[in-house]
Simulated scan of single mutants.
Amino acid sequence: MASEVSLSWIPIVKKRTVIRSFLVAGWTIIAAISATIYGFVDYESIKYVFWIAPLMLPVLIVLFSRSSPPVLNKRDEDKTILALTTTFTCLVLVLVAGIL
């Protein structure tokens, strides 16, 4: 009960909206890293994207924990796992390419 009262100021949003926000944040970082690697933009012009994305992650996690519906159906869960796995894999590949 105490944890519900302390988090009562956090809005309850749809789980699908939070997942889409995760995906948008991930693909934004992928695009920013790729654009920087290939020299389309320099770091100074898009540095705020790199600063905001890590700060947005904890907010999205809290929103996800308070989102509705509490459980996704099997089809939506499978689609979400595939989308998040693909995004994470692409992010890792872009980070490795940036290091090399």
Rank of each mutant, 00 (worst) to 15 (best):
F50K: 08
V96T: 07
R66K: 10
M56V: 02
R16Q: 15
P58N: 03
S21F: 00
S68V: 07
W9G: 10
A35G: 15
S8K: 15
P11C: 00
A97V: 05
L100I: 07
I10Y: 00
R75S: 09
S8L: 14
T36W: 10
P58W: 01
L100W: 02
T87R: 01
S21G: 03
A35D: 06
D76F: 05
K14G: 01
V41H: 06
F64N: 14
S45R: 13
L72N: 13
I19V: 14
P54I: 01
S6Y: 04
K14A: 02
P69Y: 00
T89D: 05
V96W: 04
W51Y: 09
L93S: 14
K47P: 04
D76I: 02
K74Q: 12
K74F: 04
S68Q: 08
I12L: 01
G26H: 08
V41P: 07
I12R: 15
I19Y: 04
P54Y: 02
L72H: 05
S8C: 14
R16P: 08
L23G: 03
V92C: 10
R20M: 03
A97K: 13
L100P: 09
K47F: 03
T86F: 13
K79A: 13
S45K: 15
A53V: 11
I10G: 00
L63N: 04
S67A: 13
E44L: 12
M56P: 00
L57P: 12
V94R: 05
K47Y: 04
S3I: 15
A35E: 08
V5F: 02
V59F: 11
E44T: 14
G26A: 12
G26I: 05
R75T: 13
T80Q: 02
I33Q: 13
V59N: 07
S6H: 11
R16A: 12
K79S: 13
W9M: 12
A53T: 12
P69S: 00
V94T: 14
T86N: 13
W51M: 06
L63Y: 02
C90S: 04
L57D: 10
Y43V: 15
S8H: 11
E77R: 11
T89S: 13
V62P: 14
D76E: 15
T80L: 02
I61N: 01
I52M: 06
T87F: 00
A35I: 03
V41T: 08
L95E: 05
S67R: 03
D42R: 13
L72G: 06
I99D: 02
M1I: 04
Y48K: 09
K79I: 10
S68T: 13
K14Q: 09
L82F: 06
Y43N: 10
L100K: 11
S34N: 11
F50S: 03
K15M: 04
L55F: 02
W51C: 00
L60D: 02
A83R: 08
A83T: 06
M56G: 00
D42A: 03
A53C: 09
V59H: 07
T86V: 15
S3T: 14
